[in-house]
Amino acid sequence: CATVPEVALSPPAIQSSIEASARINAFQLNGRVGVKYDEKGFFGNVRWQHDVQNDEILILSPLGQGVAQISQNSAGVTLITADQQTYHAQDAETLTEEVLGWRLPLKGLRDWVLGRKAAGEATITLDQSGRVSRLVQDGWQIDYLNYQLSDGALLPQKLTMQRGNLEMKLIVDHWDANQSGF
């Protein structure tokens, strides 16, 4: 499969690329997500568009066909399935738990996917080059297995997330991230 070159950066360069990823407030990513809880779960390709007001996460089959779409804005969260069933709730956590049987921690994931902690208490472990290797927050343990450089920002390429019997793997194949203040 496509091997990602190990990111070789001097400490100051890493420092500035970590600061760059800290300033990101809008992004689009294309990648793959796998979810597993007990013997159930799924995996699919994912396209996630995020900005300050809203999120749109589209889960796709390998053939690029939509399987489910989760969109969140100030009015709440909507889930639409491939056969166009529609579900609403106040937040993604309760919606996915009710409809899909597992809890998508969207509130925290917006920051975790960028390799940074969300608001509130968190325990962070750094690797020797100062990148976050593990983050524990809201009962989730997030392990960052690989990073990639995208427009000067150091962003995760592969991460795993665990909470109780729920495991998620996320691989980001392409980042499009814009930093605030540009």
């Binding site: 496509a2 799924f42 995996f43 390998p62 194949d173």
Partner: peptide, 25 residues
């Protein structure tokens, strides 16, 4: 390309596999 995924219909079941996620549905 850009990554390894496989869809197999064996006449009875539909298998989908992603090598890097190491997951099969």
């Amino acid at each position: 390309k850009p990554y390894e995924q496989l869809i197999v219909g064996d006449g009875v079941k539909l298998w989908v596999y992603d090598a890097e996620l190491n997951q099969v549905t």
